[in-house]
């Protein structure tokens, strides 16, 4: 019997793949941003489906919000070429074959994993935050350090008066 959740997942999965492909293939860069935003929102829905509300919100905020705006910003700053799809290379057989092979092998590899889904676990966001700032505190610290250095690096890269 096919449950409602399954149907919902099938739809969302289809949309995810389609939007991802569309984002890469459409001719206008601005359309790409629209498609990728849709992709992010779609994934967020999948997270809600998996009873991970905190991650769903995070996905919406960070990806659908911040990253999308950043990408849009990047396109606008390089305004000269904004509406052209420069050097959109044709679909060579090799990249497609490589991507397909990866897909096949990843799926094949999963067959090797010991698994057997039990009941869906539900975690309250408060549990997650307790874990994040308790057990996994070092991860967050490391993430903070990496973000700091990355932002410094980014500022260094784009600062005026280089060269």
């Amino acid at each position: 019997m096919i449950g409602l959740a399954t149907i919902a997942f099938a739809v969302l999965a289809g949309v995810a793949v389609l939007t991802a492909v569309a984002a890469l293939l459409v001719r206008e860069l601005v359309h790409t941003i629209l498609w990728i935003a849709l992709f992010f929102v779609d994934l967020s829905a999948i997270y809600f489906l998996l009873e991970a509300p905190f991650l769903g919100v995070l996905q919406l905020g960070v990806y659908a919000g911040a990253v999308t705006v950043l990408l849009l910003f990047g396109i606008m700053v390089t305004r000269k070429r904004i509406f052209s799809r420069e050097a959109a290379t044709g679909l060579g057989p090799a990249p497609v074959a490589l991507a397909l092979l990866t897909f096949v092998f990843v799926v094949a590899a999963v067959g090797e994993l010991p698994s057997g889904p039990s009941a869906l676990q539900v975690y309250a966001p408060s549990d997650l935050s307790a874990a994040l700032f308790g057990t996994y505190g070092p991860w967050v610290l490391i993430l903070g350090i990496i973000m700091l250095t990355s932002v410094s690096g980014a500022i260094y890269l784009v600062r005026e008066g280089r060269e």
């Binding site: 490589l98 092979l101 990866t102 092998f105 990843v106 094949a108 590899a109 090797e112």
Partner: peptide, 8 residues
Amino acid sequence: IGVFALLL
């Protein structure tokens, strides 16, 4: 992919 092929 080569590594995958080797493993699998």
